[in-house]
Amino acid sequence: MNSTKTGSVVVIGGGISGMLSALDLANSGFYVYLVEKGPSIGGVMAQLDKTFPTNDCAM
């Protein structure tokens, strides 16, 4: 291993996109730091009532 790169990734933003990006990275062999400025993750999607087309609860 003569690379100077680090096998970890910082994901900035804990909305739906950031969370899933972090999960994919962690599950494919990288150490992930998920950084969110608010007190909880979930972002805007967690505030939605239901989502098209199945009317599944967004949570």
Binding site: K5, S8, V9, V10, V11, I12, S21, A22, Y33
Partner: peptide, 11 residues
């Protein structure tokens, strides 16, 4: 934090 790359997903 020391990281090899960054995913920027600020919404």
């Amino acid at each position: 934090l020391n990281a090899g790359s960054i995913v920027f997903s600020p919404g």
